[in-house]
Amino acid sequence: MTPPYDPGDVVEVVRAPEPGGVGGAYRAFGETLRGLKTTFKRFVEKPVTVEYPEEKYPVYPRFRGRHKLHRFEDTGLEKCVGCSLCAAACPADCIRVVAAENDPEHRVSAGERYAAVYEINLSRCIFCGYCEVACPFDAITMGHDYELSDYDRSDLIFTKEMLLAEPLERTPLRREGE
């Protein structure tokens, strides 16, 4: 419901004085000096530039970068059971999962089945994070890496081994209050 009209709430519009005349010239001169002062204040400050390739921009904890696949820390078994729910959830259709039965002698995953092939085509991925949401075992999460350019499209198809491995360079994480 619209609140009742209260004339005390109305902010009065402040308009610039009309240009021209001696007063206008005086104001123009004064405002020019004020502008010079403003820019000079910036001049003595330290630049805010982040010199990118040397200095990486830190990301927030919930930043959605390149995906990671996870293992159980105690047993070392893969969390992924090859259920393909991530592939079903993916709006860009960039995930390919081929599941296989676990051999009881040499278990790959904790469940009945495991992902024999798990590929993400990062040239199609839109980094929406639906795969992370869809996964019933938290096997896939969005990581923090954002430096993903490559010279060849086929190099952007990440295999299971690549997604399981730790990234070569760590992306800096934004500290508390940064």
Binding site: F40, R42, F43, E45, K46, P47, V48, T49, E51
Partner: peptide, 13 residues
């Protein structure tokens, strides 16, 4: 360089 500094950046470096 100075334009950079006036705009709180480094300019060519």
């Amino acid at each position: 360089k100075l334009l950079g500094r006036f705009q709180a950046r480094y300019g060519p470096n």
